[in-house]
Design a protein around this nucleic acid. Sequence first.
DNA 1: GTCTATAAATAGATAGAC
DNA 2: GTCTATCTATTTATAGAC
Lengths: 209, 209
Amino acid sequence: MSLTKRLVASSRERIFAAAAGEFAARGFAGASVDRIARAAHVNKAMIYYHFRSKAALYQEILRDMFAAVAARVADVDASADAPADKIRAFVDAIANAAEARPHFPPIWVREIAEGGAHLDPGTLSHVTAVVKTLGRIVREGQSKGGFARINPMLIHAGIIGPVLMYFASAALRQRLARAGVPGVAQLSRETVVAHVQRVAVMTLEGEGV
Amino acid sequence: MSLTKRLVASSRERIFAAAAGEFAARGFAGASVDRIARAAHVNKAMIYYHFRSKAALYQEILRDMFAAVAARVADVDASADAPADKIRAFVDAIANAAEARPHFPPIWVREIAEGGAHLDPGTLSHVTAVVKTLGRIVREGQSKGGFARINPMLIHAGIIGPVLMYFASAALRQRLARAGVPGVAQLSRETVVAHVQRVAVMTLEGEGV
DNA sequence: GTCTATAAATAGATAGAC
DNA sequence: GTCTATCTATTTATAGAC
C-alpha cells in the first residue's frame, strides 16, 4: 500500500464501504451479497476473494466500527481531566465515532436489537471496554468528585440512548419535519450533544436531587 | 368472534404473533414467511389467505403497535394533571406500551434505522401524534408552568432514546453482565423509568441550569 | 379455512478461465 | 485480482384440491 491516499479505492475498500451501507439499510439477514457487489462495482466473486463469507464481512465491519469507538473512549479515559470533563468528553467520543462512519449508528442500533448475535469475542470486548470505562469515570467522580451515588449504567443509557437514536434517525426525522412536527428540523448535532452532556453532568453533580 | 377469550388462538392471531417475533429477530427484509408459518403452526399458504403479502403483514403489525402507543399517549394528554406529572405519565405510557408487546422495541428501533420506510400514512400519523403530544405538554409547561425554554425534541430524545434502548437491549445486557460489566444486572425497568422521569422533569424545571 | 404442489426469482457460495 | 458460469438452497407468492 502506498503512503499517499490513492485516487481510486481498492476493490476491498469499495466492498467494505458498500457492505456497510447495505447492512445499515437492510440489516444482516436482509443484506444481499449481490447488491453489495453491484454497489461496489465489483463482481460477486470478488467479495468471496476478499472475505470468507457474508457473515465474516459483516463481523469485520462490526470489529472496525467498535474498535474505533473503543479507541476514542480509551483516549478519554487516559486523560487527566476532572470526572465531569471526562463525562463530557465521553459523550463527544461517542458522537464523533457515530459521525465519522455514517452507517455505524443504524448498524449499531440493529445489532443491539439482535442481542449482539454477530459480535465475535474481540468485538464484544471492545463493547464491554466502552461500557466499563464510563462506569470507571462515574465511580471515580463518586469517590472523589462529589458525584451522586447513581448506577453508572443509568448514565450510560442516558448518553448512548439519545445520541445513537439521534444519528440513526436522520431519515425519519426528515419525514416528521415534513409532517409538520415542530422543532425536529432545528435538532442539530451540536444541540443534542450539548444537551446530553449537560444532563449527564447535572444528574451526577446532584443539583435538584 | 366470541366474547370470551378462546382457549386456542385463531390461525390469524398465531400468524400475527409469530410474525412479530420473526420481524423483531431478523428485521423486515431478513424475515422469512416460511419461518413465520412454521412458528405459527400453520401452512405457508394460510399467511397469504389472511394477509396480502409479507409487507402487508409487517405493516399491519406496525399499525397495531403504534396505534397502541398513540392511544396511551392520548390518554396522558387528555388528563387534567400538571405538566410535570404529564411528562412522568408520558414516560410511563411509552414504557408500558413497550412492555405490553415484547417484540415492539426491537421492531421500533429497526424501523427507525430504516427511516420509517414501512410506515404507511396511517401509522405515520400515529407516530407524529405521539411526538406532537409531548411537544404540546412541554410548551404548556413553558407558558404556564415555569418550564425552561428547551426544544421539546431534546426532551423527546432524552425519553425515547433510553427507554427504547433499554427494552430492546435485554439480550445484549445479559451478555454484558456475563462479561463482567458491573451494574448492568441491577438495571431494572423501574430504575430506568424513574431515572428518565426524574431527568426529564429536572431538566425542564430548570434546577442547575 | 386448510392443505399440497409448484412456479419464478433470488439467495449464498464455488469452480475455473484469464 | 478479476471475471463468467453455475450449483444448490431458499425466497415470495399462487393455483387448485378438499
